[in-house]
Amino acid sequence: MDNSVVIAGFGGQGVILAGKILAQAGMNHGLEVTWLPSYGPEMRGGTANCTVVLSNDPVGSPIVDSPTGLIALNLPSLDKFEPTVAANGVIIMNSSLIQRRTKRKDVRSFSPALNDLARKAGSEKATNMIALGAYIKVTGIIPLSTVQTAMTQMLKKEGKDKFIPLNKKALQEGYNALHE
């Protein structure tokens, strides 16, 4: 398996954490992984993003010309990364904030209302986890329970234990929101 995903959005939408959780889950699942954040001036105001590569083999390049997946939490992120997605790849676009459809005809695209789903799950802050739940549902790369465990590990490590139940629920709701 060679899966590479760009997770992008405004700074503060949690794309960096979502990527870390996916990478941790991939590692726990026995895969080789890399997680590469954007850490430059992009972090201030524009789009924050990170790239996660999951593979059965040791990962060479952590930067990817054509990712097999894109999670775009806002319009600037979709505009920027949509053209790069590999043919037959997956795009998850947040229809709560993105009004347009994808211009790509050669990808599988999904437009869940991620912010609305997160609000229903308890807090808009969990938009990133709704997105991640949806992504693993449509790609089937890692079981939901593995991702939930990785999230728990990661939030504990960062001292954010109190957000674990909300995020667990959000992963589940995101997972339920889409069909493969």
């Binding site: 870390k20 590469l36 954040p37 952590p62």
Partner: peptide, 10 residues
Amino acid sequence: DGMLGQMMEP
């Protein structure tokens, strides 16, 4: 370099 410093890997 900055990439190796910032990236995560098992």
